[in-house]
């Protein structure tokens, strides 16, 4: 059995997991589940060191030398590489309109947008939306599972790690890269450049969070969980279901016991 067969098998396996776990409500995890916290904290610290030594300097250098139009092109190019996967996952989530939008973006940006370097689709009124297999699983009610800090990639969980591997295996570029050095260079190079661009754009917020948080690890863990909940419901509010309601789940006190003020 060669590598490609194994890959295909993995995709099939993931899809059957999806079918098996299907439920009617999207997953909205309300608490952190972190059974391997000591290990995660070690990886978190190693990632911090790698960031400090490599990614942060690279991002600052990039920030200095690349003019804004170049930065926008880097982001567009990296985003464009993800569009086939965005389309596939939108389809999995039963959203053919969004799948078509991602597909249109890919076609338009790859042609008129000159190989994805220009995001003309957004100007045409088709905004970018990230859809990954972790979100697809979440959409069908698969919970996050244990929190995992991945080496280099950072915060994740069992569901989203599974999703990331599945996306990699489903991505047409993965197979294109096997057969062409040029595709490989564009795919992997674009992805790394996208990471540097992302790090640069978020530098101020990231540095401030590091500086002001009392427990940076715990803050990231909470932000990651909430962010994933949000993208799983595509940014929409969840207002009508008690159990699954991100808005409802908290801020309730037994007012009888309230020690101060507001009875």
């Amino acid at each position: 059995m060669n590598l490609k067969n194994i890959r295909a098998l993995c995709v099939g396996a993931s899809l059957s997991v999806l079918a098996a776990c299907a439920s009617t409500q999207p997953a909205q995890d309300q608490t952190d589940f972190d059974p391997i916290e000591p290990v995660n904290r070690v990886v978190h610290n190693v990632n911090g060191a790698v960031d400090f030594l490599i990614l942060y300097p690279a991002a600052m250098w990039y920030g200095d030398i690349a003019p804004q139009p170049v930065k926008n092109s880097v982001r567009s190019f990296a985003n464009n590489l993800g569009e086939p996967i965005n389309a596939i996952n939108a389809l999995f989530q039963g959203d053919p309109d969004q799948a078509a939008a991602s597909f249109q973006r890919f076609i338009v940006n790859s042609t008129i947008g000159l190989l994805g370097f220009n995001d003309v689709a957004t100007e045409f009124g088709i905004p970018y939306r990230d859809e990954d297999f972790g979100q697809t699983l979440g959409h069908y009610g698969v919970g996050a599972g244990p929190y995992i800090v991945l080496p280099l990639f950072g915060p994740s969980n069992l569901r989203d790690t599974t999703g990331m591997v599945t996306d990699y295996l489903m991505n047409p570029f993965t197979y294109g890269a096997d057969n062409s050095d040029k595709v490989a260079a564009a795919y992997y190079g674009g992805t790394v450049a996208g990471a540097v661009d992302f790090r640069y754009r978020n530098n101020d917020n990231l540095e401030q969070l590091k500086q002001t948080s009392l427990d940076y690890y715990a803050a990231l863990r909470s932000l990651y969980r909430q962010h994933r909940n949000s993208v799983i419901r595509n940014g929409g509010p969840v207002m009508n279901d008690g159990q699954n309601n991100a808005m409802n789940a908290s801020f309730d006190f037994d007012d009888q016991d309230a020690p101060a003020g507001d009875k």
């Binding site: 960031d51 990614l55 982001r75 990296a78 590489l81 993800g82 996967i85 990230d130 990954d132 280099l152 990639f153 950072g154 915060p155 994740s156 990331m164 996306d167 990699y168 991505n171 993965t174 992997y188 992805t191 790394v192 996208g194 990471a195 661009d197 992302f198 790090r199 754009r201 978020n202 917020n205 990231l206 401030q208 969070l209 803050a219 990231l220 932000l223 990651y224 909430q226 962010h227 994933r228 949000s230 993208v231």
Partner: peptide, 18 residues
């Protein structure tokens, strides 16, 4: 390996402070 950029140090967390 799709979207390392989207994953690297996570998207939304920045939005938080952002």
């Amino acid at each position: 390996m799709k979207h390392i950029h989207g994953r690297f140090l996570i998207a939304g967390l920045m939005m938080a402070s952002a």
